[in-house]
């Protein structure tokens, strides 16, 4: 479930990035890297787990599914927070700089 949610997040971000490139000011590409990186790593994790427990991997208990769903959403939220911090630090549109300079004046 965590892998599935992250893959969906990665695909959505990639579509948004593709639609806005090359004029993307919001650094959506960062989100794509974060989610694709995590998706690939969780894919490996899933393959190892499948090799270990077999077809049972596809029949998780409802409580496990709920926990993984909650974890997936939390991971997506963490990715968004990391992206937001990077965007605010880089400030590609110069909004923060403008606000801070106005306050000083």
């Amino acid at each position: 479930m965590t892998l599935l949610i992250t893959v969906f997040a990665a695909v959505i971000c990639t579509v948004i990035w593709y639609k806005n490139v090359p004029k993307s000011e919001m650094n959506i590409g960062i989100l794509c890297w974060i989610y694709w990186g995590a998706s690939l790593m969780w894919l490996v994790d899933a393959i190892f787990e499948y090799a270990d427990i077999g077809a049972e991997y596809f029949n998780p208990t409802p409580s496990d599914m709920l926990n993984d769903f909650y974890l997936g959403l939390s991971a997506v939220a963490l990715g968004l927070v990391i992206w937001l911090i990077i965007v605010l630090v880089k400030d590609p549109r110069g909004v923060l700089k403008e606000v801070l300079l106005k306050k000083k004046n």
């Binding site: 960062i30 694709w36 990186g37």
Partner: peptide, 12 residues
């Protein structure tokens, strides 16, 4: 970016 992003979410 792929490695740092993935590692961060995996660490979480």
């Amino acid at each position: 970016n792929l490695l740092w992003g993935g590692s961060a979410l995996l660490a979480f």
